[in-house]
Amino acid sequence: MTTKNLIQREKKRQKLEQKYHLIRRSSKKEIRQVPSLNEKWEIYGKLQSPPRNSAPTRLRRRCFLTGRPRTHYRDFGLSGQILREMFHACLLPGARRSSW
């Protein structure tokens, strides 16, 4: 299991990303519309003013149950390890397990 402080840090990043999402989107739209290079540099400066943790690339998808960051399946929101256990327990309808 992931430690609680890592999960809380991830939640804090998600809140920051939601808070600054509109600011980032509007400034990127401005960059595309402005023809002069000097004005673009000024807008890039504005784009760097929000906190680093508000960037969407800083987010990490984690397992819903365990918080595991690796082998994360987006469709289920679970890690591969938990998904396999659920397959074997027949908790996911329509899923087939393979053994060879």
Rank of each mutant, 00 (worst) to 15 (best):
M1W: 04
M1I: 10
M1A: 03
T3G: 07
T3C: 14
T3Y: 14
T3P: 14
K4A: 02
K4Q: 12
K4Y: 12
K4W: 02
I7M: 05
I7T: 14
Q8I: 13
Q8D: 15
R9I: 08
K11H: 08
K11F: 06
K11A: 12
K11I: 06
K12G: 07
K12T: 07
R13C: 15
R13S: 14
Q14K: 08
Q14V: 13
Q14P: 09
Q14W: 07
K15E: 11
L16S: 15
L16H: 07
L16M: 14
Q18E: 10
K19E: 13
K19A: 14
H21R: 14
L22N: 09
L22R: 04
I23A: 13
I23P: 00
R25V: 10
R25C: 05
K28R: 15
K28Y: 11
K29M: 02
E30T: 07
I31Q: 02
I31P: 02
R32M: 09
R32N: 02
Q33M: 03
Q33R: 06
V34G: 04
V34M: 12
P35M: 10
S36F: 06
S36P: 00
L37F: 13
N38M: 07
E39W: 14
K40F: 13
K40R: 15
K40L: 12
W41G: 13
I43S: 09
I43T: 11
G45Y: 08
K46G: 03
K46I: 11
K46L: 06
K46T: 08
K46N: 11
L47T: 14
L47D: 08
Q48N: 08
Q48R: 15
Q48I: 01
P50S: 03
P50F: 04
P51A: 09
R52F: 08
N53L: 03
N53P: 04
S54H: 08
S54M: 03
T57L: 07
T57W: 14
T57I: 15
R58M: 13
R61I: 02
R62D: 02
C63M: 05
C63H: 04
F64E: 03
F64P: 00
F64H: 04
L65A: 02
L65H: 12
L65P: 00
T66M: 01
T66S: 10
T66Y: 02
T66W: 01
G67N: 02
P69D: 01
R70V: 11
R74D: 12
D75M: 06
F76Q: 08
G77F: 00
S79G: 07
G80Q: 06
G80D: 07
G80K: 06
I82H: 01
R84A: 05
E85K: 09
E85T: 08
E85F: 01
E85Y: 03
M86F: 07
H88P: 02
C90E: 13
L91H: 08
L92V: 15
A95R: 01
A95E: 00
A95N: 00
A95V: 05
A95M: 01
R96P: 00
S99L: 13
S99Q: 13
W100Q: 06
W100L: 08
W100V: 12
